[in-house]
Design a protein around this nucleic acid. Structure first.
Lengths: 178, 178
DNA sequence: TCTGGCATGTAACCGGTTACATGATTAC
DNA sequence: GTAATCATGTAACCGGTTACATGCCAGA
């Protein structure tokens, strides 16, 4: 029943690699962007809290070509927490769509709405591919699966939306039906 | 950029019909269940607040065969708010999946995970159909669109997951490849 | 009497949104 | 000089989760 929390997402990522806050944010927004969310306002405070609570440790990394950064490493406590998470009941997928709510409210054709949505999803799909295709060779089975899942979803959504537009055009131009 | 809020969902529903809290909850969880969320803990306090702020009014309805109820009616203020919402920028769809995060973390085959997800989605699809098919004749264009969209998404997800299981079986039983 | 559907609520908690703030370094 | 990328943060606010609490009515 309990929803997926930032803590679980972050610790899960740190379970595999030691990462900086910036890297965590990138991964969440890019590679995992299809199915989780994360902003600086969530990630940095969460990291701080996780360190204070003894789930992770940090070390400063001095860089000369770029700003310094802090790398976080998971510790025993954190690994246990991830195990607990994995053994906990799986929470339901959640899909929130402002687009569909607006569509739902409309009595009239929703061409502009759909066109806008096609735009959005096209961009998101392109980003998903761009962010993942480069690392595809290094992906574990599950990562590849999640990526393919997301790609498939976006493509299906696009197909559905395009199909809608086509039937709309046919409806409004009946003379095309030869 | 701002996310879809309970207020917008509720006022949007009340824009079309006067409804009780219970009816709003039912609609959100059933017909709109594919793309928005709502629980008593969100809906009743929100209704109270919306009334206090003058977006809606309420009247008590006495029933003899069932418990009494309160019907909420949107007023001018509320209609304006819905207009503002409709004119505001569309916020991005949001998909949160505990299932995909767990899949992402796995190095090993994820058959059980996928099987569980198939179960979940099958149930949700059945519920979506059950909740909508009865009222399909009364649906406005947009409502039908949203419903078809959700159905299509669930079906695609199921196809993808089934396909995964099949290829997994083939991978683990190569002798089947005659 | 007890289950199930109808119906309305409360309250603590907290997690995350939103927006703002800062600064190093590189390349143009 | 300034835009872009890298990098880390803060803080107020509030919205919703979670869980609990209550009660009516019908039918088995």
């Amino acid at each position: 029943m309990t929803m997926l929390k930032g803590k679980d997402i972050i610790l899960s990522l740190l379970y595999k690699d030691a990462l900086t806050g910036y890297e965590i944010m990138e991964r969440i927004q890019n590679r995992l962007g299809y199915f989780v969310e994360g902003s600086t306002g969530m990630i940095y405070p969460a990291l701080k809290k996780l360190e204070k609570e003894g789930f992770i440790t940090s070390e400063e990394i001095i860089q000369h070509d770029k700003p310094n950064k802090k790398r976080y490493t998971i510790c025993e406590n954190g690994r246990t927490s991830v195990q607990d998470y994995i053994e906990s009941p799986i929470s339901q997928d959640k899909f929130i769509s402002d687009f569909l709510l607006r569509a739902y409210l409309e009595t009239n054709p929703i061409k502009e709405l759909v066109t806008h949505e096609i735009d959005q999803i096209t961009k998101r799909l392109a980003k998903l591919i761009a962010d993942n295709e480069a690392v595809i060779a290094d992906m574990a089975a599950g990562q590849l699966f999640a990526y393919e899942f997301g790609k498939n979803m976006y493509q299906t959504q696009l197909n559905f939306l395009h199909r809608y537009l086509e039937t709309e055009i046919r409806r409004s131009n009946p003379q095309d039906n030869l």
